[in-house]
């Protein structure tokens, strides 16, 4: 066909006849020619079926999504999503290895941790009058002052603190290993699955699995930045620090530590977050 002919609706003729056909094109065209094909009528019937099916699928997807959104909530998230948090917890607990240490950093990289949470530490307290209560299932095991914690071997770690919000910061904590602390009570605290911790006013509370608590990088912290006393807004006189959990689990100004066999309440888990919040 030449350009001289009237071709108002014609597209430019491919130059394939002049050039050798590209092997990929040839292969595809051969494949297409050999592949399953439908007559125009069959294609129309298939199209109608597909549109119908597609419409149903879109509706199902939409109502499925809305269904989850409107589902009855378990601690402020839809029950299905809470269930996957628990599924994920189960999986990652199986993969937990107690000898696996979180990465540490040179102390020179540390800086004073920015302060976010103030729940449970808004009111000033008399640090001299502060006492740490330790509870078991049967009731109070001990009431200690800070010197009793300081009597345990001091450990220091420079780790990357991670906030559930998404920021992180390298900081240095010093204190006693929780495992040393627990072992000092001997059989009185053995065999428990969980640890619960509260601020003295019980406004803030965390629940933790015993594996995390007994990890060597889980510290009851009383100093920061390599020896400065823990200040009030960082949780004086005693706070929890562990690189295995988000900051929401690292309770400031611990008032009571309880060993228990039932999963303890957790301030932020009740507000929609993952109870396990493991890193």
């Amino acid at each position: 066909m030449s350009d001289a002919e009237p071709t108002p609706t014609a597209e430019p003729i491919p130059t394939a006849s002049e050039k050798p056909i590209d092997p990929r094109q040839a292969r595809y065209e051969a494949e297409l020619a050999a592949s399953k094909s439908l007559s125009v009528d069959e294609f129309r019937r298939l199209s109608r079926r597909s549109v119908l099916f597609g419409g149903v699928a879109v509706a199902a997807g939409f109502f499925g999504f809305r269904g989850i959104q409107k589902q009855e909530e378990a601690d402020n998230i839809p029950r299905l999503l809470r269930a996957t948090h628990e599924f994920n917890e189960d999986l990652w607990r199986r993969l937990y290895r107690e000898d696996h240490l979180a990465k540490t950093f040179p102390p020179s990289e540390a800086s004073v941790l920015r302060v976010k949470g103030r729940h449970g530490i808004r009111e000033d307290i008399d640090l001299d009058a502060w006492r740490l209560n330790v509870d078991g299932v049967g009731g109070r095991i001990a009431t200690l002052d800070l010197d009793a914690v300081k009597a345990l071997p001091r450990h220091e770690m420079t780790i990357e603190h991670k906030c559930v919000e998404g920021w992180s910061q390298v900081t240095t904590w010093g204190g006693a290993r929780f495992s040393d602390f627990a072992e000092s009570f001997g059989s009185a605290v053995e065999g428990f699955d969980f640890v619960s911790m509260n601020t003295p006013d019980r406004e803030y509370y965390v629940g933790l699995d015993i594996e995390t608590m007994m990890h060597p990088q889980t510290l009851l912290v009383y100093d920061m930045m390599g020896g400065d006393p823990l200040d009030s807004e960082h949780g004086a006189p005693l706070r929890l620090a562990t690189p295995l959990k988000y900051g929401i689990k690292q309770i400031k100004r611990i008032g009571t530590i309880s060993f228990t066999n039932t999963q303890p309440a957790d301030f932020w888990a009740e507000r929609g977050y993952d109870w396990y919040s493991h890193l």
Binding site: L81, T84, H85
Partner: peptide
Amino acid sequence: KLAKGMAWHFT
């Protein structure tokens, strides 16, 4: 919606 965001994301 951070908590809900995480819950959806990890599901």
